[in-house]
């Protein structure tokens, strides 16, 4: 953000600066420290990965590292979790994975679109009070989501009133379309951070470009569609990753507005439910946990090349 001024003075960025820092830390100890940290960071997840392939009897009686002494592996756990259920659980986890996708994809795209529009407006259609609105939206990050749940629930069911005068009708979505409630709620909660990050990116687009388009007679809608959106793709992609991960991993919003049912419950909530039902069958839980982790990991690895680029030009310059 400050970088707008600084970088325009020094438009050429050579990679030499980073090199000097590298030299400062080029001691062998730094590398070793990082390798140790990486291993420490990975071991807990790796342990669950190993556990998910062990037979139930082994899991109950020995730590997962014993696997390397007495290797005994099976696909049974995954088969049970995905297709069968077992131990008092009916049905596999696949419908819940689909629910997670059904919740996550629209929630991510809708919040991203609305946030990008708002960010463009704050950055390039300046008006009295646009600064204040920007800071206000930034500050909303701190409102604890838990406190919004009851008012929102009431709003969906009863609409909005001033006194007895209705100003917004009740939506009555809970019965048949709980997922729509979940989409709207996730969009609301994602907006403060999304508007903030995208604004920082959009505000840095070259002023000349915008003015040239205005002179050519393009209106704001045209500029937004044909100039801004293509240029901010990396930022959109990097925020899309974050938003996808948050929504996919969310438990609270999905439970509050969807409850437990095979129509709308996402995989996180199913997993939490299974902790109660599977009880001692931890081999099944670990397999379930891994199934739930796999899709966000795929999304992350598929989009990660955008990630650094998007954040680089975004909020985070020194």
């Amino acid at each position: 953000m400050t970088a707008t001024t600084e970088v325009s003075d020094t438009p050429v960025i050579k990679p030499g600066g980073a090199k000097e820092v590298r030299r400062a830390f080029s001691s062998r100890t730094a590398s070793i420290l990082i390798i140790v940290l990486t291993i420490l960071w990975t071991i807990p997840t790796f342990g669950v990965f190993v556990t998910s392939f062990r037979p139930g009897h082994d899991v109950a009686n020995s730590g997962w590292w014993e696997f390397f002494v007495h290797p005994k592996a099976t696909w049974e756990n995954y088969h049970t979790v995905l297709f069968v259920g077992g131990s008092g659980v009916t049905g596999g986890i696949i419908p819940y994975l689909v629910n997670s996708l059904v919740i996550t994809i629209p929630a991510t795209l809708i919040s991203l679109t609305i946030a990008a529009m708002a960010a463009y407006c704050i950055a390039w259609i300046r008006f009295r009070g646009s600064d204040s609105i920007f800071f206000f939206i930034f500050a909303l990050q701190v409102v604890p989501l838990q406190m919004s749940l009851i008012p929102l629930q009431r709003f969906y069911n009863l609409g909005a009133h001033i006194g007895t005068v209705p100003i917004f009708p009740a939506l009555h979505l809970g019965q048949h379309h709980p997922i729509v409630q979940i989409w709207i709620s996730h969009t609301m909660f994602a907006l403060p951070l999304a508007v903030f990050l995208l604004h920082n990116f959009i505000a840095q687009l070259p002023r000349d470009l915008m003015e040239a388009a205005r002179v050519d007679g393009a209106n704001h809608f045209r500029i937004f569609r044909t100039i801004v959106l293509p240029l901010i793709t990396p930022a959109l992609a990097s925020f899309a990753i974050f938003e996808f991960l948050w929504v996919w991993n969310d438990l609270l919003v999905a439970l509050t507005f969807g409850g437990y049912n095979v129509k709308s419950t996402p995989v996180t909530a199913r997993l939490q439910q299974m902790i109660g039902q599977y009880g001692a069958n931890w081999q099944l839980l670990t397999a379930g946990a891994f199934v739930a982790i796999i899709i966000p990991l795929i999304v992350f690895f598929a989009l990660q090349r955008f990630f650094v680029r998007g954040l680089l030009a975004g909020s985070v310059k020194g």
Binding site: M117, I125, V143
Partner: peptide, 22 residues
């Protein structure tokens, strides 16, 4: 009109979802 269309949806959602509950 441009301000309304671009900023309106975000403001309405934020008011209902965060500001009023706060």
């Amino acid at each position: 009109l441009a301000i309304l269309v671009f900023l309106g949806p975000a403001i309405v959602l934020l008011l209902i979802g965060l500001v009023i509950p706060a």
